[in-house]
Design a protein around this nucleic acid. Sequence first.
RNA 1: GGCCUCAUCGUCUAGUCAGGUCUAGGACGCCAGGUUUUCAUCCUGGUAACAGGGGUUCGAAUCCCCUUGAGGCUACCA
Length: 478
Amino acid sequence: MIRTRIAPSPTGLLHIGTARTALFNYLYAKSQGGQFILRIEDTDQARSTQEFEQNIVTGLEWLGLHPDEGITTSGSKGDFGPYRQSERTELYRPYLEQLIVSGAAYWDTTPLEEIAQQKEQAQQAKRPFVYRPECREQQNEYRDGAVLRFKVQDEVIWFEDKIKGKIEFDMSLMGDFTLSKGWDNPLYNFVVVIDDELMKITHIIRGEDHISNTPKQIVINRALEFSRKTFAHLPLILAPDRSKMSKRHGAVSIDQYRQEGYLPEALVNYFALLGWNEGNDREEYSLEELIQKFTLKRVQKSGAVFNIDKLQSVNASYIKALPLEQKITSGVQFLSQNRYNIQHLAQDQLERAIDLECQRIKTFGDIGEGIDFLFKDPVYDSNILLWKDMSISDVKENLEWVRQVVYNIEEKTSKEIEQTVKAEIQQDNRKPGCVLWPLRVALSGKERSPSPFEILTILDKPTALNRIDTALKLLSER
RNA sequence: GGCCUCAUCGUCUAGUCAGGUCUAGGACGCCAGGUUUUCAUCCUGGUAACAGGGGUUCGAAUCCCCUUGAGGCUACCA
């Protein structure tokens, strides 16, 4: 059974990099009929919080990446828990003891300052610094303030990365690294090996910033005689300057995208294509389709710049493709969130407005700006009522004329209204633009908006006539 | 500095493993045209790349070497 995991630290909001790594773990597990586990790595008690954990767990589920095991919004589940490292401390001690007994690890009380000094000396002498203290060969016991170090052997450690291929490390260049601070503070590289073994993880899929941790974990894993793990290191998501994505580059938390009105399906689709493709031109995939098609072999080797324009374009097409009910649900939610007075509109009018606006927006966060005139009378500069080189009297004459047309309209759909109005225009020998531009501006108060016919299907007739009167009044005051 | 990784349009990428069908394809962006009263949508077209240098070969984006560039890691954080 293939088992993969995502093991975030709750030291911040769910990061897009973490989400993407989770997605690839999820896709690989599911494509192989395996399981996907969510473990919380909160050994760093000082920086970890409940809130961040909650944010990560809900964020992943919002994306549709439901773990088979581990921490979920409805609590912990699975047979290999606990799934929070902070609740696993007593599990680690026997393995620490085992490493000491087998001679693979030793206690070191060398003060930190002394090591730093040695390091500096080596650097000044332009020699690589490899920490191998004399006490590594002594049979020693725990003393206050001691750290447990792994006794690194001179050898070449290599592994076959499923994405990058063979990667080798000359361990004679690596110093003895720390496994645990005293008995009670086991550190990342040690803990992760124990947890992955105990949770029966088979494939470790993570960001390539972990490549240099891999040889450490391999030697620990081997010293403990654990089963071999398969590694796959994902290319990183990069900021536009090609450096690692961080807060200074703008929105990096899934939460932010959620609040701005991105769809989880769009995010998933975009992230999947950021570093993976099927080998053809296809770009649209549901989560289910990704599971069908995903292979580690087709994951890109190099980092990918996160491009917000592309994400927006993907999101826009997902919004357009949404079933009407979902457009309405999300539309209503974001309109109220953005404090638009949607009560002013009858339900069916509101629904038409949202459906209409979904053609134009890139994110649901944008909804409202373009149709605020539906919720309140617009305030605008009367100059924009003038189309091209029309005179004020010309505009007034056309508006007065079209007021009568609007007054007589009985049709309900935009298409029917359009037909009727255009027929009238033709019959009266008018230029469409001279009528329709001022009408549209009078109704919307905007230079850019949906068509007047669309607007007329949403505004009730008294409001529409009222706005035309307002426009006429504005023109008279000039 | 040391170690590791990577390298096709501005960006995401197809093509590289099994060299010729590549005057290098798609998407986003941008530009132009069409539709439209406007903007958006939609449709059509265009723009733009094999990092450089050596090999190997009849033939290299594709294989090899070097250079250059970019990124990651270098904790008693994860």
